[in-house]
Simulated scan of single mutants.
Amino acid sequence: MSFLRAATRTSAFLRPTVNLQSPSASLFARWISTEMKARLDKDIKSNDIVLFMKGTPDAPMCGFSRATVQIMQVQGVDFDTKVNAFNVLEDAELRESIKEYSEWPTIPQVYVKGEFVGGCDILLNMHQSGDLEDLLVKNEIITLEDEEEKK
């Protein structure tokens, strides 16, 4: 037992090499390529809504992606004109890079007008509180008239 305690105190590989108290500390490895970052910047900034998901809006491949699509459909978002969806299951580099890009570890991920909103849980909370509708109206993704017609 004393050997283990001594090894723990003295072995470099058992001690963290990152100061997690530092404001610049990150738990994400930096592997994103310059080309992928440029591609993500362009795609995210040039579309009203960007959705990184497992599957497609017509055929989601996980429950969280399905729920995200359904939340946006309930909000009246037109997937044909307002959403650019990316299937991360088709591209392993994209799947890992988007997590680093957003510093958000899970998929799906939603961006509105170039700004990261969050994943399924965040979207659900925003939907329930009315904040998602406010965000979509403010960014001219939907109009209040669209919401009235649904009722």
Rank of each mutant, 00 (worst) to 15 (best):
E103F: 04
G63S: 01
L89A: 11
V69P: 10
A67Y: 01
E103K: 06
T68C: 11
L94I: 05
T68V: 11
V69T: 02
L94N: 06
E100C: 00
G63V: 05
T81N: 10
Q75R: 07
I71H: 01
G76V: 10
S65Q: 07
G63T: 01
E96H: 14
D80R: 07
I98K: 13
N84W: 01
L94S: 05
Q73A: 12
A67Q: 05
I71T: 14
G76A: 13
F86R: 10
F64S: 08
T68L: 15
C62D: 14
V74M: 14
T68W: 10
L89T: 11
R95V: 09
E96T: 14
A85Q: 09
V69G: 12
R95E: 14
M72A: 07
V83I: 06
T68I: 14
G63M: 06
M72K: 04
L94K: 05
V77F: 12
T81Q: 05
Y101P: 01
M61A: 03
F64V: 01
R95G: 02
A85N: 09
G76R: 02
C62Y: 14
K82F: 02
E90H: 04
D91G: 13
M61I: 00
T81A: 09
E100D: 01
E100F: 10
R95K: 10
L94Y: 13
V77W: 07
K82D: 12
E90N: 12
D78Y: 07
S97D: 10
E90R: 14
F86A: 03
L89E: 13
I98H: 13
K82P: 02
V74F: 13
A85M: 09
E96L: 15
E100Q: 08
Y101L: 04
G63D: 00
V88A: 06
M61D: 00
K99W: 15
E103D: 11
E96W: 12
Y101Q: 03
C62N: 14
A67H: 01
E93C: 05
L94Q: 11
A85R: 05
E103T: 13
V77C: 08
R95W: 13
R95M: 10
S102G: 02
K99C: 09
F79V: 14
